[in-house]
Design a binder for these strands. Structure first.
Lengths: 173, 173
DNA sequence: TTTTCCATGTAACTCGTTACATGATTTC
DNA sequence: GAAATCATGTAACGAGTTACATGGAAAA
């Protein structure tokens, strides 16, 4: 159920890592996937170790601060697969925000609505353009599927937005 | 930025209401739009009054518990329009959950993945069927647009899921 | 020499949910 | 007579974020 835990387990399933390393990776490469903050990641890693899903051993490189390296235990791998299965079946309610706003759309002058939706459309277009430039990932199809999924939904949103704007434009005679 | 506040302001923009009334309405008709809990709604209504966005006066019908009836003030109406404009332009990051799971999809045996996605597809199909039976709302196009929007995204999700399953099926020879 | 990097954490805070309290009144 | 309805709230809890502390090393 918990996407954050799943993410950390997944990252550890590739290789053992220490918290700082994981946080760097998330910040650099996964900013659009998760918004988990560093303190949270440290806390969850701690919890994973307490629950027996990960083992910890401390490493020291030269005179640097000691690192706590986490490695998945067999139980942790099982936990990972369990959460993964769950997340495939039930990704959780995809809270589509903004629909509350749509509901009250009639309370606003039509041109303000159109202007607002145009700005929204522009942002969606940007996101699409950005995602389209993400190169294929290579290692398995999972990551590529995730990107593709986001793209598909964004394009559907874009097309719908265009349609709505057109209709509103036509109706404002 | 706050969808809950926008929702309450919007409901009050139709007519003055007391908290219990609003909560009932939300529970009965807006369960799929918001998951806001009663205590939260009471608290936000309180805040709206404190901030001058709503006026409060207490009514008593017979021997029943007194009602605190909230009505939008002019400032409240302005606030409502302001939040509404914002929400049209920037509905907020549509957290698409489950994409974390997709990323790690290669770590699971292909038939488990396919089975999981089939179950997911079935649930999406159900949601679509359910939404397709919602009758047109009549009062303005806003509510209908919100439903339509959700439908469009669900259908895009469904089509994508079908495609992925087909591809995985083909690849598992 | 000041800033940034490394690496981990803690303490305070925010926001929302859960569960409960209240007390009359209507319904089963 | 027991249970649900009406109507509002409070207190405790949980999860996550923010901001900060630490202290040596490398980079500017």
């Amino acid at each position: 159920m918990d996407e954050r835990e799943l993410l950390l387990l997944g990252l550890l399933s590739f290789q053992s890592q220490h918290g700082y390393q994981i946080n760097e990776f998330i910040e650099r490469n996964l900013a659009r996937v998760t918004s988990m903050k560093k303190a949270t990641a440290y806390a969850i890693l701690d919890r994973l170790a307490r629950d027996g899903y990960a083992s910890v051993h401390t490493e020291q490189a030269g005179n640097r601060p000691p690192r706590k390296v986490y490695a998945l235990t067999p139980r942790g791998e099982e936990r990972f697969r369990e959460l993964l299965r769950q997340s495939l079946v039930d990704p959780g309610e995809s809270a589509i925000p903004g629909d509350v706003g749509l509901m009250f759309l009639d309370q606003l002058p039509r041109d303000e609505v159109i202007e607002g939706l145009r700005m929204r459309l522009a942002r969606v277009d940007e996101q699409i353009a950005e995602l389209e430039q993400v190169p294929p990932h290579g290692h398995g199809i999972g990551v590529d599927l995730a990107v593709e999924h986001k793209l598909v939904l964004l394009r559907a949103d874009r097309d719908w937005l265009r349609g709505v704007i057109t209709r509103l434009d036509a109706g404002s005679d």
